[in-house]
Design a protein around this nucleic acid. Structure first.
Lengths: 190, 190
DNA sequence: TCCTTTTTTTACCATTTGTTAAATGCACCC
DNA sequence: GGGTGCATTTAACAAATGGTAAAAAAAGGA
């Protein structure tokens, strides 16, 4: 299972078997159930996850006290609270499993150690995470000023696989509406 | 005026006078009026701006054909369409001046040349732009599920200086509402 | 299978926001 | 001073969304 992570990296860069072994020794595997909390808001995030299977979500409470979903992350994506991870500041966001998931866990200290030994790895991982950040922010921005039904339709088109695997209430909180509204939108669509 | 850019970089990293001269030779200065288009959507973005004075906004049309404001950028911030700039893809977003502004223009080719000569500059600028991306996305996410009045109040608290300098309709398009709604919200606040 | 628990759907009404249209205010120019 | 064009404010009504509560459906557990 850990090899799926190495294989993913090899899509971008040729990694020698020796380097792969170095990496293997510094990472671990973890299985989580739907709803499980991987990182609790209010702390400094010192872990990065690579998702082998399943969907994670980044969550935070808004002013009204509702728990909103900022992002969904799925297979072959990294998941962390980057601002906290990079700058050692408290994170207002948490990380939860939106469905059963299998992960590679990258501890910050060990990752920094790897970056020292394999400098290309730093460029590779920060490049991937930055690019995925750009894509996420584009999606979020594209929802600006759209009504809820349009946001939902676009979500279905953009992330049909995620729509099938996570709960209605998670999707609603991602779209910024109540689950009742989303249920109503679904009804009107059929 | 160009020196304000060098001085900004020196806040993060000691730059020799010789290096500064190299940089100076590859950048240019530009003054723009409110409403002026700096980059038109539908093209590949090959410029990055550093704002010495004023406010720029990144805009894009949504499904209904309304021009929405994705971000406001102000003094001492970089502004570009990063996904297009980095990956040579067409940008759905454009860049406009939200008020009169003074800019440093960084042409992509020249910037890449500088990156070759001064490798630390690449790390510096990508670091700054990535960090500012993280902060922008946090702001955008924090609006999720808030009503328009709350979003406006938070905007006023977060970016009071920008609120004073750009038009009501620009702010409304940033908050994802109509200008009539924003005007009504203002009335209710006094 | 039956029971319990959770999730999703419905319905009703209150509130918010959009739409359309008009009025007002404001800066600029002649 | 009197226009002119543009931005902002108002208003009335329509449409969308939220809040609350309850019913229905689905998922698990014993």
């Amino acid at each position: 299972m850990i090899d799926s992570f190495i294989n993913f990296l090899r899509l971008f860069k040729n990694i020698s078997d020796a380097d792969a072994e170095l990496i293997r020794n510094e990472i671990s595997f973890r299985k989580v159930d739907e709803g499980e909390v991987l990182f609790e808001e209010g702390h400094v995030c010192r872990e990065m996850f690579f998702i082998c299977k399943g969907v994670l979500r980044i969550v935070a409470q808004n002013d009204k006290g509702n728990k909103m979903t900022y992002f969904f992350l799925k297979e072959n994506q990294f998941c962390s609270i980057l601002n906290s991870f990079n700058n050692n500041i408290l994170a207002p966001e948490g990380i939860e499993a939106a469905c059963d998931a299998e992960l590679i866990v990258l501890k910050k200290q060990k990752l920094l150690g790897l970056y020292e030994k394999l400098p290309y790895l730093k460029e590779l991982i920060t490049g991937i995470t930055t690019q995925s950040l750009l894509e996420k922010i584009n999606v979020r921005n594209s929802y600006l000023g759209e009504d809820a039904a349009t946001r939902y339709r676009n979500f279905l088109m953009r992330q049909p696989d995620i729509a099938l695997r996570v709960s209605l209430s998670d999707i609603a909180s991602y779209l910024g509406i109540t689950q009742q509204s989303l249920s109503r939108i679904r009804k009107n669509m059929r």
